[in-house]
Simulated assay, not measured.
Amino acid sequence: MPTYVAPPGWPAEVRPPDAPDWERTAQAWLLDLCPPEFRSYPALRRHLVVLARFAVLHVEACQAAVRRGLSEARADLRDVAMPDVVEAAVQTWLAEDARLSGVRRAVGLVEEALRGRRFVARL
């Protein structure tokens, strides 16, 4: 019986590389990460490595937006919101930054697997 290995950080929604239907689950997950318009581009639906590259760049753009929002939040919001609301906004940016860091790792791993990398189990 074959053993399929997914490394730490691999998305739960995607089957491990070489498992039955793993590429179909990867495609569905990658499309869910991207803007809905990406579903209408035939090149992205037919070429998973290209879709993965688009997804990586999209997630990285989201990370850049979050970091900008975090860096500007206190100055931009202090005149329009109470200090506790500003702090809640900062905490929200921090939580989103942490979430996107995990997503970036996961999408990078899927891209590597689509490019042919295989992972080995470690004890």
Rank of each mutant, 00 (worst) to 15 (best):
A64V: 12
E37S: 08
L70A: 11
V56I: 12
L109K: 09
L123C: 06
W93T: 02
F38Q: 01
W93D: 01
D18H: 13
V56T: 05
A121P: 00
A26H: 07
A65P: 02
P35I: 06
T92H: 13
A89H: 02
A64N: 08
L100H: 08
L114Y: 03
R74A: 13
V14M: 08
G108S: 08
A12F: 08
L57P: 02
Q63T: 07
A81I: 08
M1E: 12
P16T: 09
P42C: 06
V14A: 04
L51S: 01
C34P: 04
M1R: 14
L114H: 04
R39K: 14
Y41M: 08
L51V: 04
W10C: 01
R117D: 04
W93F: 13
V107K: 06
P17F: 07
A106S: 15
A28F: 10
W22H: 07
V90I: 15
L109Q: 12
R104S: 14
Q91M: 13
V103M: 15
A6Y: 00
F119R: 08
W29G: 02
T3I: 15
A52M: 06
T92W: 15
E23G: 00
R15A: 15
R117A: 07
A61Y: 01
A81F: 09
E111D: 07
A26M: 05
F38M: 11
L123F: 11
V110F: 07
R104V: 00
G108Q: 06
A75C: 07
P2A: 13
A52G: 10
P11K: 09
L100Q: 02
D97N: 11
R99T: 07
A95V: 05
L33S: 00
V85F: 07
V50R: 11
W22N: 05
M1H: 12
P2F: 09
E111R: 15
Y41F: 05
L30V: 00
V50M: 14
R74P: 01
A28C: 04
D32W: 05
A95Q: 13
G102M: 06
S71F: 04
W10K: 04
A6T: 03
Q91A: 11
D79Q: 12
P8F: 10
R99M: 03
E23Q: 15
V90M: 08
V80H: 13
F54N: 09
R122P: 00
D21M: 13
D84C: 11
R78M: 14
E60C: 08
V107H: 05
E112P: 01
C62L: 14
L109D: 04
G69M: 07
L31K: 01
F119A: 05
R99G: 01
Q91F: 01
E111K: 14
R104D: 09
G108R: 07
E112S: 12
C62M: 10
F119I: 03
A26E: 06
V80A: 11
V14D: 04
R53N: 14
G108C: 10
A65M: 13
G69K: 06
W10H: 02
F54R: 08
A26P: 00
R99E: 05
F119D: 02
D97K: 13
P20K: 04
M1Y: 09
